[in-house]
Amino acid sequence: MQNSVQLEPHLSRADRVSMWILMAAGAAIAVTTAVFAGIRIAEVLGNHDVEVLGEFTGTLAQAPIGPDGALIEVELDRAVLTVPSLPGAAVAALVLQQLAVVATIWTLVTTLGLVTVSAMRGRTFSRRNTRLVGTAGIVGVLGFAAVPFFGNMGANAAFAQLSQGTFDNVIMAVDLFPFVLGAFVAALAGTVFAVGDRLRREAEGLV
């Protein structure tokens, strides 16, 4: 007598088409990210009139948003700074920021793409896929922290350069809520795949 257990869900043609579309979109995002990062790195390495996004805290400015363009006092949150040139450490930080963006996006697209291909072949839950999902989660969380970290280093150097060290606006800001939420989602996904793999192995043992 033969016993059969369906360990993996059957994928319909529509499911497979959707997966191919998602993988194509991921590849397009990865390539686009690399292109824009390359453009930004070239701009930074040129080190002439470099635009840097700076964050402010408690800094007042005037904006022409009143009647007939009258100046109204506002509090700056962020602004683009144009710096004639940056010190070497700031240039390195901004280049590392773009490399971190590319490394994060490419790792996420590659690992999740491999998981998708495995699912299309009828094996969603496995130790390999659990490791891939775990890698994607860890890299995503680290990348989320590294990108603004290097960006803040470059911005603070820009403030110091423009003000000749007289404007104290040193900020190292990372929005904690998305960071914690991303870490939770990564941990949850890793747990789901680990449990799914264990249940699959247990079910295979019953066949």
Rank of each mutant, 00 (worst) to 15 (best):
S4C: 08
G54W: 04
A28S: 06
F149T: 15
E75A: 09
L45A: 12
V180I: 15
R40E: 09
Q98E: 14
S12E: 15
A92T: 06
L11M: 12
S12G: 14
E8S: 11
M172G: 15
P148K: 07
V195D: 11
V207M: 14
A61G: 12
A61T: 01
V101D: 01
R127W: 10
L53V: 05
M1I: 07
I65D: 01
V31N: 09
N152G: 14
M120I: 03
G182V: 01
L60Q: 13
A14C: 06
I72M: 12
A25I: 09
P84Q: 02
I41E: 00
A34S: 08
L60M: 10
F177N: 14
L199C: 08
A183W: 13
R16G: 05
N152V: 13
L86F: 04
D49G: 05
A155N: 05
P178M: 13
A89G: 11
Q97M: 12
F36M: 10
A92P: 04
F36R: 08
N156M: 02
L162W: 08
E43P: 00
I171E: 15
G196V: 10
V180D: 04
V5M: 13
Q98H: 08
V95L: 10
V17F: 14
L60G: 04
V147I: 15
I138N: 03
A158F: 05
F149D: 05
T124D: 03
G122D: 05
G190R: 01
T191Q: 09
V139P: 08
S85N: 10
P87R: 07
L176A: 15
G151N: 06
I171Q: 15
F56C: 06
Q97V: 04
G66T: 07
V52A: 02
A136V: 01
A187C: 04
A194D: 03
G58C: 08
Q2A: 07
V5S: 09
L7T: 13
T104K: 02
V74E: 13
F125T: 10
L112N: 01
T116L: 13
F177D: 15
R200M: 13
A203N: 14
N3W: 12
R121T: 06
P178S: 12
